[in-house]
Write a protein that binds this DNA or RNA. Structure first.
Lengths: 144, 144
DNA sequence: TGATATGGGACTGGGGCGGTACTATATTCG
DNA sequence: CGAATATAGTACCGCCCCAGTCCCATATCA
C-alpha cells in the first residue's frame, strides 16, 4: 500500500535500542535478540549503517556498535537509502506528468523532513489506531 | 524504499484524465491508450474504482466510465486500498513499539490528509527535482 | 445479432526483498 | 600463541507479491 521496507524498520528499531543505551557498545547479536530481529539479517543492516557513518564499530571480541552521529542530522529518506544499498546522492529530474508528479513531491518532502531522531529518540510517545491490512501478516512492519 | 503501488499510480493518472474530460464517458481502452497504461490491467483498476463508487459506469457499446463522486471526499489512503482489493474499514490497534509506531502514525496521517483531488485536479503545477533510484526502471512509478 | 463495452473472477511469471552463508580480518583473553 | 568472538565484505537463494493477462457472463447500441 505504502510501506517502509522491513530493513528500514529494523534499522529504526536498532537505532532506538542503541540510543537508549547511550554510548555503550552493543553487538549485533545482542541487539538482534533484544529486538527480536533475525541476527544474520541485522548484521547486514548494521554494516550498511556503519558504512555510511551512522554507527561506529569496534571489532573483535567484546566489540560491537554504537551510534556515531547526531540522529537529528539524517533524514528518514537517507536512512532508507542506506539500508537498501542505493546510491545516496543520485536524485535526478524526471518528467512525470500530473498527479504522479504532485504526489512524488509531497511524499519526498515528507521523507526528507522527518529525521531519524524524530522517530527514534524518546519524546512524547504517540499511541494511535493503526491502519492495518490483510489478516495473516507474520510480523509488524510499518505500513499504511 | 517507500513507493506507491503502480496500480494506485495508474488510478491517479486515469482519474486525472477523466477529470479533465469533465463528465464525458471514456472507455477503458481510450484511457489506456491515452495514458499509456496496459489496457487489461487498467480494466481491473477501473472495475475496482467502480465497485467503490468512485466511478460510475455505462455498459455496452459506446459505454465507459466517468467520475462518480467529488474527488475531494476520498483520501489517497482510501484510493490505495480500493485498487489493492483491501478491506476498507478494517483498521485495528496493533502493539507496535517505539519508532515503528511513531512513523506509522505520521505516514498514516499523511495518507489520510491528502485527498485525491489534491493530486489530480488542476492547480498550481509543481515541478521539483525527484528522488529517483536505481538505473534500469522501465516505467515511472511514484517512489521515494 | 454482432460488435463493443463493463462485471467479476481466476491465473501466471518475474523481480525484489527478506533472509542466509561464507570468507577474511581484527581484538580479547587464557 | 591460538581459540573465541566480533565486524567487513560480498555473493547467493527462495518465496511472496503484484503487475499484467485471460476468460466468460452480461449489457447496450446499431
Amino acid at each position: 500500500m505504502l510501506r517502509l521496507s522491513r530493513k528500514a524498520d529494523y534499522a529504526l528499531i536498532s537505532l532506538g535500542y542503541l540510543a537508549e543505551r547511550e554510548g555503550r557498545v552493543s553487538s549485533a547479536r545482542e541487539i538482534a535478540s533484544a529486538c527480536q530481529i533475525p541476527a544474520a539479517l541485522l548484521m547486514n543492516i548494521l554494516k550498511s549503517l556503519h558504512q555510511h557513518g551512522v554507527l561506529s564499530s569496534i571489532r573483535g571480541a567484546s566489540g560491537g556498535y554504537r551510534i556515531g552521529i547526531d540522529l537529528h542530522t539524517i533524514s528518514l529518506l537517507e536512512l532508507c537509502k542506506m539500508v537498501e544499498q542505493v546510491d545516496l546522492g543520485a536524485s535526478e529530474r524526471l518528467a512525470l506528468h500530473g498527479p504522479a508528479q504532485a504526489l512524488q513531491y509531497r511524499l519526498s518532502r515528507f521523507m526528507r523532513e522527518v529525521s531519524v531522531a524524530d522517530l527514534v529518540l524518546p519524546g512524547r510517545r504517540i499511541d494511535v489506531p493503526l491502519e492495518r491490512v490483510g489478516v495473516g501478516q507474520k510480523k509488524q512492519a510499518v505500513q499504511v
